[in-house]
């Protein structure tokens, strides 16, 4: 059994977002790049599953669509424990384009995991699109994933609760927080071994993009906070009722 985790290279979550060139382009100056946090949790779970499978899961791979500058992120995934990696050497374009590229790699796997969204363009779409292109079942908002024999048991978050879902293989799991406790910190041994693990660079296949970013904007600045004295909480509540009409 083989698991593929699709990862993306995103700005660190504390990054202050700025744009340049007339707000047309994301300004990457000084940005620290990381594995998309949801993807990293997916990878962590995949590795836990492999380690606990007694050899049944023979391989965990990662795949990323992006140029060479995203390689440190891939190396980190290898250092954490992925066995090998694929990088499709092209600009990510849009979700449809990325899913088209990933499909070529994913088709050889039994389980494909994607983060529910990426913390940059936040489309929440690649995993779902990929599953449709592969004509595989997909389960979204996966917060727990277990494999016992050939049974895949999934806990999925729904509005107001959770469901336990089973899925046939192959399938695409779109994961969110909860799937693993915390991402792993790569150990020195892992970093050392990552040097030797295969990082396969693939040429992109012909595909189109269906969407395009025109420009970006920042949210309008908020008016200054209206402070109410701590001895006069009633005044706040009245403001909320009469001025803000919020209660």
């Amino acid at each position: 059994m083989k698991i593929l985790v699709c990862i993306s290279n995103v700005p660190d979550t504390t990054t202050k977002i700025k744009f340049k060139e007339d707000n047309k382009v994301f300004d990457t100056t000084g940005v620290q790049w990381i594995i998309n946090p949801w993807d990293e949790l997916a990878l962590t779970r995949a590795l836990e599953l492999k380690e606990g499978s007694g050899g049944k899961i023979e391989k965990v791979s990662v795949a990323l669509v992006g140029d060479k500058s995203s390689e440190p992120t891939i190396r980190k995934a290898l250092a954490i424990g992925a066995d090998d990696a694929f990088r499709v050497d092209t600009d990510p374009g849009d979700s449809f384009y990325v899913a088209t590229q990933l499909k070529e790699i994913a088709k050889d796997y039994d389980i494909v995991l994607c983060g529910i969204e990426s913390s940059d363009y936040t489309s929440s779409a690649v995993g779902g699109m990929l599953s449709e292109m592969l004509e595989w079942p997909s389960v979204s908002s996966v917060s727990r994933l277990n494999i016992e024999g050939d049974d895949v048991s999934i806990r999925r978050e729904i509005d107001g609760g959770q469901e336990i879902v089973s899925s046939q293989m192959p399938f695409v799991g779109i994961v969110q927080k909860g799937i693993a406790l915390e991402p792993r910190i790569p150990a020195m041994r892992g970093i050392m071994m990552a040097r030797k693990k295969p990082l396969n660079v693939l040429e992109p296949i012909e595909a189109e993009t269906l969407t395009e970013y025109e420009n970006f904007e920042m949210p309008p600045p908020k008016a200054a906070v209206k402070l109410v004295d701590e001895e006069n909480v009633k005044e706040l509540v009245e403001l909320l009722k009469n001025e803000a009409k919020a209660i």
Partner: peptide
Amino acid sequence: TEEQEMIRQAARDFAQR
């Protein structure tokens, strides 16, 4: 190097987390 940067980050994550 990429590796030195990764080690720095690993130590940072360990410390800050």
